[in-house]
Design a protein around this nucleic acid. Sequence first.
DNA 1: TTATTATGGGGAAATATTTATCTTTTCCCC
DNA 2: GGGGAAAAGATAAATATTTCCCCATAATAA
Lengths: 222, 222
Amino acid sequence: MIESTEGNGHNHKILRLPTIKRLPTYLHILKRLQAEGEEYVSTTALINELDFKPILVRKDLVLMGIPGKPRTGYCLKDIIQAIEKFLGWNNVDEAFLIGTGALGSALLGHKPFEENGLKIVAGFDIDPERVGKVIHGKKIFHLSKLKELAHRMGVKVGIITVPWQSAQEVADVLIEAGIVGIWNFSMLKLKTPPEVVCHNENLSGGLAVFSVKLQQRRENLL
Amino acid sequence: MIESTEGNGHNHKILRLPTIKRLPTYLHILKRLQAEGEEYVSTTALINELDFKPILVRKDLVLMGIPGKPRTGYCLKDIIQAIEKFLGWNNVDEAFLIGTGALGSALLGHKPFEENGLKIVAGFDIDPERVGKVIHGKKIFHLSKLKELAHRMGVKVGIITVPWQSAQEVADVLIEAGIVGIWNFSMLKLKTPPEVVCHNENLSGGLAVFSVKLQQRRENLL
DNA sequence: TTATTATGGGGAAATATTTATCTTTTCCCC
DNA sequence: GGGGAAAAGATAAATATTTCCCCATAATAA
């Protein structure tokens, strides 16, 4: 479904969505181990810090194209670099964020984004109360300024954190401004032209799973 | 994997994780249609607002145990009620949130939680700068007060939004306080006793998928 | 040097999930 | 009423994802 066209130069392995979602978790642990002074790591060691089965980890890491040494494991430096390259987290995309409510403000100050290839450079809103303010070091502009600023700064990515009622409207502004990728946190499915990459984040899905688990726990106690 | 022990009273259908994650999306659209004055909805109509295939929606809705009428669709009131009941979103759990940084503050003010069965009643932190403040209408206490307050208020759910370095420490406090469910937003896999429900949210998974999509879009342009 | 063992690697089996096909039901129009 | 169409329902097929099994390799120890 999602094919990595390169890796170590000659492998054309297929990476699937579940694998991609697991990669940041691996990356986090690998970096921790590296910070602790380790040079190599085996999947069996990784598993201590994870919920997944060992074989799954090995399968995932194989796809990164980095050979592991029997009895030793993977070279931390190499595997970390490979994952970061695959995710594109080695070079940074600049992004605009639209909608500076509770969620938007949080994302403006969310450190991991900058460390992981996505730097939010400005916020946008239409509420006069918010326009002109600075949140987590980022200035908030009026939405009407977006197109001009996008061109001037060469920003190609937009993050939508407005309520669903205005999400499509904001998306249209972004498309008009020549944005190439949209990360959509609203509950609305956006209508976008095929050349624009649009990724919908489903925050309530997590709450749903948690709620069901809680409920079952309760029922099992009876 | 996850079995609904009731529904309309006599069905014992199996609900799987992907289905559960899609339910809030359906619910959102269904409520919108209801607000617009509709009484019935067909899956084909639902699909206009969704990314999924029609058959998948029908499969999911069948599991709710509400019969649909051919040529008409599902009764909005009934199907909404069935989904909310399944998710446990018809009765509210009170929760504590620990860690009032950017992410934690956002969740304190995140409206959809209250509407969907999870009411955050207080925040906790150890930073003297934050303790005593009020964020989005919720008071912030020192972590050392958690156990006593949990018992006094009968709170049984905890949300962890601290950095991974202190996540296990916080989890231990929650367990000690008799909490039954933990929603963990940190990058650390928590060690918890089997009777405590622990759900790990993986926010960076979404960023990973978005990053890969963006990269592929770029490569396809060359 | 040689035996042992922990590990990675590849392919096959098992499981989970989605999609397709066909049947049945009910409404609507004539 | 009767025929047609739109939609749900059930069953089967296809696809995606995870897990298992066995082999090869290299570090370690005898």
